[in-house]
Design a protein around this nucleic acid. Structure first.
Length: 452
DNA sequence: AAAAAAT
């Protein structure tokens, strides 16, 4: 490695050696040379904790934390938690890749703000997709396992009537203390007064840049925030903030403490990035087909730009005899839940999807991400760097190693790959599409060694 | 232009 922490990508043999001995670093997250930068609004000295005990948490909350396998606070948790838990509460704008202990940090903060004797909504978290909201709730329930917390998911209802709970939405939200949901549903439930906002103490936006920036999502997030009580703590977390969103975030969460991790360098560090130079759009499919025919790959995600493409690729791959599943926003809620649950269980190895799953989703076994279509910004011609970073971040979770392959098929897509390479200052290595001995030489070792 | 998110 050089002084910037860059790996010499040309020496693959050496890398493979290091991969073999590399242990997944589940709880010693983020022990890299990159520092957490803190900007606190007050004059108090900035505390940094070394153990969770120092936070004076409820003992049953501590029990949940330890049972989840967290032994010590991660770097960002060490610095951010004392600020997040201050009395009176202060706003926070945090930047760090998910997989650095970000979710645990805000879930812990939400749980510790709740008065368990008061059966009314006190903590609200919004996420940009149904799948991410459900994933966060799983974390909440693990961490809060030994507390009496009452939780509710504010996402679109399943189109199949639930036979297990039989509760109406009003009943479900009447005594819920911690709510995780998506903006549309949450706004709807607040407006109908199914969610009572009067006791809300903390409002969290996960993937905050996306929640504020995106057409539609931004409006909803703002409307919801404006419904929160005046003294409600506002917490924004994301791995990325574009310059314009950062300015807006400062107005959305006024007088916020801030922490930043140099994420762009960091999250691409353990992910080996490649590109394959395809002849044209149709050749991309042939290469994809060959890739899955000739290589044994663990779990992988294939990103495309449009729902239609996801459907089409899924059908063509299935016709070719590959077992793939497909998830996008055009599916019913029941289908989405079933597909996601199946993928998490490992029933399916190959998931084809849109940007709906670009952010936040944690499936530890994913060691390959394919950008079948490169992520584009609103012009449709230029790269979307944030989405690229989030997409390839679906692999290489918690310090594991991952591989990403970008499909290039014309001059524009080649320029996009070069721009991405330039932006992150990381080499994206060319892999031939016609010489399978070479392809295997480059990819197979890396991917198959990660299957175990 | 597309994706997501509401009904």
């Amino acid at each position: 490695m050089d002084k910037n922490g860059d790996v010499d990508v040309t020496n693959l043999a050496d890398q493979i050696e290091t991969l073999d001995t590399q242990e997944p670093k589940h709880n010693s997250l983020q022990e890299s040379s990159h520092d957490v930068i803190i900007q606190a609004v007050g004059d108090d000295p900035i505390l940094s904790i070394k153990t969770f005990e120092e936070l004076k948490l409820h003992e049953n909350l501590l029990k949940g934390i330890y049972e989840m396998g967290f032994t010590r606070p991660s770097k960002i948790q060490a610095k951010a938690l004392p600020l997040l838990l201050k009395t009176p509460p202060e706003n926070m704008i945090g930047q760090s890749q998910s997989g650095t202990g970000k979710t645990a940090a805000f879930v812990l903060t939400m749980l510790s703000r709740i008065d368990f004797n008061l059966q009314a909504p006190q903590a609200l978290c919004l996420a940009p997709s149904r799948e991410l909201a459900r994933q966060i709730m799983v974390e909440v329930r693990k961490m809060g396992k030994y507390t009496p917390v009452i939780t509710a998911e504010a996402i679109r209802e399943s189109d199949v009537k639930s036979t297990t709970t039989g509760k109406t939405r009003s009943e479900e939200f009447a005594n819920a203390q911690l709510i995780v949901g998506t903006p549309g549903t949450v706004y709807d439930l607040l407006k109908k007064r199914i969610i009572n906002k009067t006791s809300m103490k903390i409002f969290v936006l996960d993937e905050a840049d996306n929640m504020l920036d995106q057409q539609g999502l931004g409006d909803q997030s703002i409307r919801i925030k404006n419904m929160m009580p005046r003294d409600c703590q506002i917490v924004l977390f994301s791995a990325t903030y574009s310059a314009q969103v950062r300015t807006f975030a400062g107005r959305f969460a006024p007088n916020a403490n801030q922490f930043t991790l140099k994420v762009e360098e960091l999250s691409v560090k353990t992910i080996n990035q490649f590109y394959m130079d395809c002849k044209d759009e149709n050749h991309k499919f042939e290469v994809l087909d060959d890739l899955y025919t000739l290589l044994t790959i663990g779990q992988s995600i294939i990103f495309v730009q449009k729902r239609d493409t996801a459907d089409m690729i899924a059908k063509r791959m299935t016709d070719k005899g590959h077992r793939v599943i497909n998830l996008h926003g055009g599916l019913s809620t029941t289908e989405r839940d079933a597909v996601m649950d199946g993928f998490r269980r490992g029933d399916a190895k190959v998931l084809i999807t849109t940007n709906v799953l670009a952010r936040g989703i944690d499936v530890l076994q994913v060691n390959l991400v394919i950008n079948y279509d490169l992520p584009l910004d609103s012009t449709g011609r230029h790269p979307d760097f944030e989405t690229y970073l989030h997409r390839i971040g679906r692999t290489g979770r918690f310090g594991r190693t991952g591989v990403s392959i970008n499909f290039v098929h014309d001059a524009n897509s080649w320029e996009i790959v070069k721009a991405i390479e330039n932006h992150f200052n990381r080499e994206i290595v060319k892999v031939p599409t016609d010489n399978w001995d070479t392809i295997e030489g480059i990819l197979k070792k890396e991917i198959s060694k990660l299957n175990s």
